Amino acid sequence: MSIQHFRVALIPFFAAFCLPVFAHPETLVKVKDAEDQLGARVGYIELDLNSGKILESFRPEERFPMMSTFKVLLCGAVLSRVDAGQEQLGRRIHYSQNDLVEYSPVTEKHLTDGMTVRELCSAAITMSDNTAANLLLTTIGGPKELTAFLHNMGDHVTRLDRWEPELNEAIPNDERDTTMPAAMATTLRKLLTGELLTLASRQQLIDWMEADKVAGPLLRSALPAGWFIADKSGAGERGSRGIIAALGPDGKPSRIVVIYTTGSQATMDERNRQIAEIGASLIKHW
Rank of each mutant, 00 (worst) to 15 (best):
A182H: 11
P181M: 03
K71L: 00
A84W: 13
K284S: 09
S51H: 13
I125S: 02
A235V: 13
A182E: 05
L100K: 15
P217C: 14
M268E: 13
P60E: 07
N134E: 13
E87Q: 11
A215S: 15
L188E: 01
H110Y: 14
I283P: 02
F228L: 14
E164I: 00
Y44E: 01
G263F: 13
I140R: 07
E102G: 04
P105T: 06
M67L: 13
S221F: 02
N168V: 10
N98P: 10
G76C: 10
K71H: 00
T261W: 04
R41P: 09
Q203P: 02
P143Y: 10
L47T: 09
N173M: 09
H151W: 10
F70A: 09
I243E: 15
Q88I: 03
D99P: 05
S240L: 13
L160A: 12
R271V: 09
P143L: 10
F64M: 11
P143C: 07
L74I: 14
Q274H: 08
A200M: 02
G239S: 09
A200I: 10
N272K: 13
K213D: 12
G154D: 12
S240M: 14
T186D: 15
K252R: 08
I244L: 12
R81E: 04
E169S: 03
G194Q: 13
L218Y: 12
A230E: 01
S68P: 00
I54D: 11
T198M: 05
T267W: 05
F149K: 03
I206P: 02
V82P: 01
S57V: 05
Y44D: 00
A148L: 14
E270A: 07
L223K: 15
V214L: 10
G279C: 08
E164W: 00
K232D: 00
M268F: 03
G242S: 13
K144G: 03
L47D: 02
D48G: 03
I45W: 11
M66A: 10
Q265F: 04
T69F: 01
E237P: 07
L223P: 06
S68F: 00
S122T: 12
L136K: 00
M153D: 02
A200W: 06
V29H: 13
P143N: 10
L150Y: 04
S281W: 04
T186G: 12
R59D: 08
M268Q: 11
M209K: 01
R238M: 01
R63H: 10
A84E: 05
L38P: 07
K144Q: 03
R41L: 12
N98D: 13
K252F: 15
V257M: 10
V257I: 13
R255Q: 13
D177M: 00
T131F: 04
L100P: 09
D177W: 00
D155S: 07
T193I: 03
H151V: 04
E119D: 15
A200H: 05
W227I: 02
K284T: 05
A280D: 15
A225R: 11
E175I: 10
Q37M: 05
E108G: 14
E26I: 14
D250H: 02
C121Y: 00
N98F: 10
R202F: 05
E35M: 14
A230W: 05
H285R: 09
A183Y: 05
V29C: 12
R255T: 13
G43C: 06
I256W: 02
A235W: 06
A124G: 14
S221W: 04
D231V: 13
S254F: 13
N134L: 09
C121T: 07
L247T: 10
E169Y: 05
E195Y: 15
T198S: 07
P249H: 08
G39C: 04
Y103D: 02
G194T: 10
A222D: 10
P105I: 02
D161G: 05
E169F: 04
R63C: 10
I243T: 14
Y44P: 01
V31R: 01
N98Y: 13
I256D: 01
E62L: 02
A280M: 13
E87W: 04
E145Y: 12
L135T: 08
G242H: 13
W163M: 13
L191K: 01
S104T: 14
W227L: 01
L205A: 07
R59E: 13
T267F: 09
E56M: 08
D129V: 00
K109A: 07
R189E: 06
E108K: 15
A276D: 07
T198Q: 06
E277K: 11
Q86L: 02
L49E: 04
M66Y: 08
I125D: 01
D212M: 01
D269M: 03
G251H: 10
S96Q: 10
G239H: 14
I171T: 15
N130I: 01
K53F: 11
N50T: 10
F228G: 14
R220E: 06
D99C: 04
Y260H: 12
Y103E: 03
V78G: 10
T126G: 05
K144C: 03
V101N: 06
I278T: 15
L197Y: 11
G251E: 15
L120D: 01
S281C: 13
E175W: 11
K190E: 14
A170D: 02
W286C: 03
S281A: 09
P181A: 10
D33V: 02
P253F: 04
R118G: 11
R271M: 14
E62P: 00
H285C: 10
L49R: 08
Q265T: 06
F70H: 06
A200D: 05
S264L: 08
I171D: 15
A40R: 08
V258R: 00
H94I: 03
A235S: 14
L55P: 04
A84Y: 08
A132S: 12
D177V: 00
L191H: 03
T69L: 12
G90V: 12
I256Y: 04
L160G: 08
G114M: 03
A40Y: 09
T179S: 02
S51T: 06
H110L: 12
L223T: 12
L188Y: 07
D83K: 03
I54F: 05
H156Q: 11
A40V: 11
L28I: 06
V157G: 15
D177P: 00
D161T: 07
A246K: 06
I278Y: 01
I278E: 00
D155N: 10
S80V: 13
R255L: 06
N168Y: 02
A133C: 05
D129A: 00
V29P: 09
P143H: 06
L120C: 06
Y95I: 03
G248S: 08
G43L: 01
S51L: 09
P65V: 13
T178G: 03
D212P: 11
W208R: 01
M184D: 00
I206G: 12
A182T: 10
A246S: 06
L247A: 11
F70R: 02
E195F: 01
S128V: 00
Q203L: 04
H24N: 08
A182S: 06
E62I: 02
P165D: 13
K32L: 13
Y260P: 00
E169T: 05
T138R: 12
Y260C: 04
G242Q: 11
E108P: 14
S254G: 04
M127Q: 11
S104Q: 12
L191F: 02
R41F: 04
P165S: 10
I283W: 02
G39N: 05
G76Y: 10
A34H: 07
Y260L: 08
Q88E: 15
R91M: 07
P253C: 03
M180I: 02
R271E: 14
D177H: 00
A77F: 03
V31W: 08
T138F: 07
A183Q: 08
R118S: 11
G43V: 01
S68V: 00
V101I: 11
S233P: 06
A132D: 00
S240Q: 13
